[in-house]
């Protein structure tokens, strides 16, 4: 149990996907302009990460390892993730139209989001079991959502602030992220 808790905390704040692993930067800078978008995107990414971690770790532990073809994991993972995103999108559209309207446009983007493939590859590298993979995906998803929400709060203020012309937009967002990453470095003392 304490093992699972430590995986969760490490993935959520210490090795935060965005600020220390640099994964999922495109949605981080692209979607973090409004708070409501940030929450929807975070929820969509967490959902896809959970489902794809479950299926890829089942495939890894019960197919790739027994047949000694671990090196095939890149091709198999990307295909699994791409098809899962399609299935999730179709299911949500059929069952819950309100949720689809909130998440819909972000789902296709997630296929090529390095955060999802990244977390499944991290699970395989660390040799996590199925339960451990699920916990690490949940932690990573929550950490991602947390940072996205913090960033969108700051950027709503930045939009109206008066900063030098050449710093506006992406450059100042990067420098804000640098300060956030500096703050998150403090968490590394926790373990």
């Amino acid at each position: 149990m304490s093992n699972l808790l430590s995986i969760f905390i490490v993935m959520a704040v210490i090795n935060n996907l965005v600020l220390s692993k640099f994964l999922g930067l495109c949605p981080f800078f692209g979607v973090s302009k409004k708070l409501s978008n940030a929450i929807s995107m975070g929820a969509a990414v967490t959902l896809v990460m959970l489902i794809s971690s479950l299926s890829t770790s089942v495939i890894y532990n019960y197919i790739l390892i027994p047949f000694n073809i671990e090196f095939m994991n890149i091709i198999i993972y990307i295909l699994v993730i791409a098809s899962l995103v399609q299935i999730v999108e179709l299911t949500i559209r059929r069952t819950n139209i309100a949720l689809y309207n909130a998440l819909g446009i972000y789902l296709p983007l997630i296929t090529t989001n390095c955060a999802v493939l990244g977390i499944t590859l991290i699970n395989a590298r660390e040799g996590y079991s199925i339960i451990e993979s699920m916990v690490s995906a949940l932690g990573a998803g929550i950490g991602f959502t947390l940072v996205l929400i913090i960033m969108s709060g700051i950027r709503e203020k930045l939009e109206v602030s008066d900063c030098p012309k050449s710093m506006r937009g992406l450059p100042i967002a990067f420098i804000t992220a640098a300060l956030l990453a500096l703050a998150f470095l403090g968490f590394s003392g926790m373990m």
Partner: peptide, 14 residues
């Protein structure tokens, strides 16, 4: 460390 990466790219873009 990670913050340096964000800082250097931000400043270079600017």
């Amino acid at each position: 460390l990670p913050p340096g990466a964000f800082l250097v790219i931000g400043l270079l873009l600017a």
